[in-house]
């Protein structure tokens, strides 16, 4: 028998092992739900799949009786707009800050200490300030997401810029390149795939800030809905919403990974 560290699963076994925990979780939920509902048909804590199905039908495929909107899609649209704007803002700011501090020691001396301090401020702690400054509307929520993840992206990209071998910068100079040419043609193109990586890593935090902001002050959005129906213990709505958010996060991540592979073919060719 081989040592445990040398035993690798075949592709089929790997797939089966991967699916197993999901199946087990589902099974446990089903049994627990059945047991509770058998005792009390009005129990709301662990709704049955048919109850969840009804809720999905109601939220996603029937117009709301009061507003006439399809609730799930309207919530998704508002949340994704906020997340998209916040992340876009953070990515642009982070790229500019990271690139300039990584490439220009003078700029780094000026901004790096400030960036370090700002990155240590817990973003949720300044959410009240954002609400006071921007009001309770959209800008405050977008600003929270942007403020929350910009320092991470900026510092990550700064480190990535510094990782680009000195030899390349020297080489470009011996070919006659000036500073802006080096930034545009040597540093920026090599940073773009890393920017996408950085955004992928910070999306988790982005969702966190989005849902927190929506829970506190919003009139629609996925986070708002979850916290709203919590008052009625509507697990039949909360559970599909959480699953939907998870699926969205997964799809955005996969889309960004695919985009990176497609736009920057040079990074996956051969080994260095």
């Amino acid at each position: 028998m081989k040592r445990l560290i040398n035993q690798t699963p075949t592709p089929g076994l790997r797939l089966a092992l991967g699916i197993l925990p999901f199946v087990l979780l589902l099974l446990v939920y089903l049994l627990a739900s059945d047991a509770r509902l058998a005792e009390n048909p009005n129990d709301k804590l662990l709704p049955s799949f048919s109850q969840i199905g009804d809720a999905i039908q109601r939220m996603a495929f029937e117009p709301n009786r009061r507003t006439g909107e399809y609730q799930l899609w309207a919530d998704t649209a508002s949340s994704l707009t906020r997340l998209g704007l916040g992340v876009l803002l953070a990515a642009s700011l982070g790229l500019i800050l990271g690139l300039s501090t990584g490439a220009l020691p003078m700029v780094s001396a000026l901004t790096s200490p400030l960036l370090t301090v700002v990155s240590l401020i817990p973003p949720l702690a300044i959410l009240p300030i954002l609400f006071i400054v921007f009001g309770l509307g959209e800008p405050a929520k977008v600003a929270l997401i942007a403020l929350g993840i910009t320092p991470f992206i900026a510092r990550d990209l700064q480190r990535r810029t510094l990782e680009i071998p000195m030899e390349q910068l020297v080489k470009a100079q011996t070919l006659g390149a000036n500073t802006s040419q080096i930034i545009c043609r040597v540093l920026l193109p090599q940073l773009l795939p890393r920017l996408i990586d950085s955004v992928r890593l910070s999306l988790g935090a982005g969702w966190l800030f989005l849902i927190a902001a929506e829970a506190i002050a919003a009139t629609d959005g996925l986070g708002y809905r979850i916290f709203l129906v919590r008052r009625y213990m509507s697990m039949d709505v909360i559970l599909p919403y959480v699953a939907w958010i998870t699926l969205l996060a997964f799809m955005i991540d996969a889309a960004l990974a695919g985009l990176s592979r497609r736009l920057f073919p040079w990074q996956n060719k051969g080994g260095h």
């Binding site: 071998p165 030899e167 390349q168 020297v170 080489k171 470009a172 100079q173 011996t174 070919l175 006659g176 043609r185 040597v186 193109p189 090599q190 920057f264 040079w266 990074q267 260095h272």
Partner: peptide, 21 residues
Amino acid sequence: AEPGADRGIVFQQYSVFPHMT
């Protein structure tokens, strides 16, 4: 005191730009 176009260089490695053909 900085590299210039009159002096070309080839290093042992990392001399070329990986993102260009």
